[in-house]
Design a protein around this nucleic acid. Structure first.
Length: 489
RNA sequence: GCCGCGUUCGUCUAGGGGUCUAGGACGCUGCCCUUUCACGGCGGUAACACGGGUUCAAAUCCCGUACGCGGUACCA
């Protein structure tokens, strides 16, 4: 088995592209096959400089590795379509020789004119096809001499696939079963553009054939193009690979997960954005794997190895799937909690030191440990500013409701008692607070709430004793004293 | 318009003629735990698009309708 991921470097890797890559990767892994990366850079007008690097970076970040491809080698290279032009030209010539393709000289203006002329309510998108090609300027309507003359003197031309009407084109899709089109609906697709480069349709099937791809797994947006591809395979006498079209990832409002569509709903579309936001790659991968596929069990949290072991195309769904940011957040929390506080601290330490100058890695790790079960993202811990610096405000509603007359004095005397504690640990602090409660004949809430407020300025948060342990005696005493004189006065 | 694909809780899904009083997960929510909050535990909420068939029996098979999505480029 040989599969491929064949992105176009026209922008940062799309989240849907990552899922396509993942499914290919999982299938190859499952069957001990080969997974290759091919860069489909045939559109010079849409080329984006750093897009290719982003594809590598994003795949690497997600843990999706390929066996053959740019920078990796392999015996089917080169893996950039821009380096394979001669081969596409050869195949196009071969098709022309076979009478399966022809040369067309129409300018974009002439095609525009044809479309304008034929456009109507019933036919809003006229095609260049069996019905219209006879009115156009091409090697079918021109004499042989004229065609040769025009080509010889350097007129611009494209090569088009000659599609005959009335034929059924049918194939078995691994996720959808048999799919049938009638060739009437297929236009005379351009194979070689006037710049001499191939279109996706030609380059793709030539490469898939030459690279001995056995399974083509791609998004559903390609389903309608598949008859063109089948026609090409047939025309060349090649066997088409097994096709599998994945359901599209939809935005929560239902439309395509396009940049405009999704970002207005707060959904990042490029993998880079997920990297930058600090998502756990394993979480995104796990979430994506389950977006359109399931292992047939109730298990949702899975390692890549578990996914690969369970993966099969017949468990891929057929309906479009909506992207649910909340579920992704849940996956992220799950994976985050599986990490060690130190490891998390290391990843956010640069940001921590930037925001709280002088903070130590050990302290950040302690803060992470304290906050772990309430984090969605690693960096969320930095938003709990009170862990790193004295609170500069106190929650007004909570103070109004629960800060009593004795709260300030109790904070002050509790602070004094804390000066005697050794060792400074959560356990001994708990003992100390209990003693304090008994000595003063008060309810435990009468000191716990004021202390929490003094330390964090908030009515809720992590365990009080653990928080005190992390902050240290100096900081705790300072905060208690400050609160005793500044709150409720 | 035409062509193709689809349609089970709000979302991701299980199910593929009887085991479905339709299961799981996210979300939302109640209780417990915790003199905070969160985590966790135990509950709850909520779905077979609609209409015809076929069958003793349909979420499951067939047909139609509606709706959604994709395609309809010298973009991929």
């Amino acid at each position: 088995m040989r599969v491929r991921f064949a992105p176009s470097p026209t922008g940062y890797l799309h989240i849907g592209g990552l899922r396509t890559a993942l499914y290919n990767f999982l299938l190859a892994k499952r069957h001990g096959g080969t997974f290759l990366l091919r860069i489909e850079d045939t559109d010079q007008t849409r080329f984006v400089e750093d897009a290719e690097q982003d594809i590598f970076d994003s795949l690497t970040w997600a843990g999706i590795s390929f066996d053959e491809g740019p920078g990796k080698g392999g015996s089917f290279g080169p893996y950039h379509q821009s380096a394979r032009s001669a081969r596409y030209k050869d195949v196009a010539d071969q098709l022309i020789g076979l009478g399966k393709a022809y040369v067309a000289f129409d300018s974009s203006g002439e095609i525009e004119a044809l479309k304008e002329k034929l456009t109507s309510l019933e036919n809003p998108n006229p095609r260049y096809d069996y019905a219209t090609r006879s009115e156009m300027t091409n090697s079918l309507t021109l004499s042989k001499e004229e065609t040769v003359l025009r080509m010889g003197r350097g007129d611009e031309y494209v090569v088009r696939l000659l599609v005959h009407p009335g034929k059924e084109v049918s194939f078995i899709d691994a996720v959808r079963g048999q799919v049938t089109f009638v060739s009437d609906a297929v236009d005379d697709q351009v194979l070689i553009k006037s710049d001499g480069l191939p279109t996706y349709h030609l380059a793709n099937i030539v490469d898939d054939h030459d690279m001995e791809i056995t399974h083509v797994i791609r998004g559903e947006e390609w389903l309608s193009s598949t008859p063109k591809h089948i026609l090409l395979y047939d025309a060349l006498g090649w066997t088409a690979p097994q096709m599998a079209h994945l359901p599209l990832i939809l935005s929560p409002s239902g439309g395509k997960l396009s940049k405009r569509n999704a970002e207005s709903e707060g959904i990042p579309v490029s993998v880079k954005q997920y990297r930058d936001k600090g998502y756990e790659p394993e979480a995104l991968v796990n979430f994506l794997a389950l977006l359109g596929w399931n292992p047939g069990t109730d298990q949702e949290l899975m390692t890549v190895d578990e996914m690969a072991a369970a993966f099969s195309l017949d468990r891929v769904g057929q309906a479009g799937v909506q992207f649910d940011l909340q579920k992704l957040a849940w996956f992220n929390e799950q994976y985050l909690r599986g990490r060690s506080p130190l490891s998390i601290a290391q990843t956010i330490y640069p940001a921590a030191a930037d925001r709280y100058p002088g903070v130590s890695l050990e302290f950040v790790a302690g803060a992470v440990s304290l906050m772990l079960e309430r984090l969605s993202f690693a960096s969320d811990v930095l938003d709990a500013a009170y862990l790193f610096e004295d609170p500069n405000s106190f929650d007004e509603t909570a103070v109004a409701k629960r800060w009593k007359e004795n709260s300030g004095p109790l904070c002050a005397s509790f602070s004094k008692k804390l000066g005697t504690i050794s060792p400074w640990t959560a356990e001994s602090l708990q003992v100390c607070l209990k003693e304090f409660v008994e000595e003063n004949g008060i309810g435990i809430g009468e000191i716990m709430f004021p202390a929490r407020m003094a330390l964090s300025g908030l009515p809720s948060g992590p365990d009080l004793y653990a928080m005190m342990a992390l902050l240290g005696v100096d900081s705790v005493q300072r905060r208690l004293l400050r609160a005793s004189t500044s709150i409720g006065v």
